[in-house]
Design a protein around this nucleic acid. Structure first.
Lengths: 129, 129
DNA sequence: CTTGACGCTTACGTTAACGTAAGTTTGGGC
DNA sequence: GCCCAAACTTACGTTAACGTAAGCGTCAAG
C-alpha cells in the first residue's frame, strides 16, 4: 500500500505550474488531461500532474497541442499487438528526427549568438580603452 | 568588386524554402524582410535570402514572429554606444538562457522516447519468440 | 442562515500567422 | 499591338490557444 495518494485541486496545480484555471480546463477539453471528479470538482492525481508537466514541456518546445497529445499518448499506450508496436516504433523515430533537427537549429542559433557576443565585447573593449 | 550580385524573385525564394508567396509578403509586412523593388516587384538580394533563412529557423524552433524579429534585429545592429552594447549583451544572455532551457527539454524528451523504445522492443521480443 | 472562497459551465472575444479569393498591372515573347 | 505568366494590392476568412465575462452551485466558517 503506497501511501502516496495525494491529490491536487485545480488552483493548486495552476499555481504550481504558473498557468491559469482556464488553461487547465482547456487542456481537459482537448483530451490532454482526464482528472477524476468529486461531484463537479476536478480531482488531480499524481498521474494527471505528471501529464500536465509533459504538456507544458511540449509547449516550451513549441509543439502544437495536438502534436503533444500524440506524443503523450505514446507513453501510456498499452503493449498491444505486433502491428501496434511497429507503428509506435515508427512514430518514435519520427519524433526523434524532429527533435534532433530542433537541437541542430538551437545549436546553430547559440553559435550565432556566441559570435555576436564576441563582436559586442570587442566593440566594448575598443570604446572603453 | 565581388561579382556575387545575384538576386531572386519572390517565387524563386518561395520554392527554395518551401513556403508560399503570401508568407513572404506577410513577413515583409511584419518588417522581417525589406526587399528592394523594381517598380512594384520585389527583388531579393543575398542578405534578404539569409534573413529569410533565419526567420524560418526561428519558426522551426517555435518562436513567435515578433521574437524572431528581435533576435534577427540583434544581428545587424550597428555597434552604437556603450549603453546599447550592454543592453545587447543582456538580450543575448536572455536568449541563450531560453535556448538552453529548450535544449534541456529536448534532451529530456529524447530520453523519454528512448525509454519507450526500449520497452517497445522488449514487448516485440516477447511476442515474436 | 448567510456569506465568501472556490469551482463549474456556457459562450463570445482575441491574437498570431497565414489562406484564399478577386481584381489589377506589367514586362517580355510572338 | 496583344497576350499571358508572374506580381501586385486590398480585404475578408480561418485555426489555435487561450482570455474574459456572466451566471450558478456548494460547503465550511462565523
Amino acid at each position: 500500500m503506497t501511501g502516496t495518494e495525494r491529490t491536487w485541486s485545480i488552483t493548486e496545480l495552476a499555481e504550481e505550474f504558473g498557468i491559469t484555471l482556464r488553461t487547465i480546463r482547456f487542456y481537459e477539453e482537448q483530451g490532454l488531461l482526464t482528472p477524476a471528479r468529486n461531484g463537479t470538482r476536478r480531482i488531480f492525481a499524481d498521474g494527471d500532474r505528471v501529464r500536465l508537466g509533459l504538456v507544458l514541456r511540449g509547449k516550451r518546445l513549441g509543439f502544437p497541442l495536438d502534436e503533444i497529445k500524440k506524443i503523450i499518448g505514446m507513453y501510456d499506450a498499452e503493449p498491444g499487438e505486433v502491428g501496434q508496436l511497429r507503428y509506435l516504433l515508427d512514430q518514435i523515430e519520427q519524433r526523434r528526427a524532429e527533435l534532433e533537427m530542433r537541437r541542430r537549429d538551437i545549436d546553430a542559433t547559440l553559435s550565432d549568438l556566441a559570435d555576436l557576443e564576441r563582436r559586442c565585447r570587442a566593440d566594448l573593449e575598443r570604446l572603453s580603452v
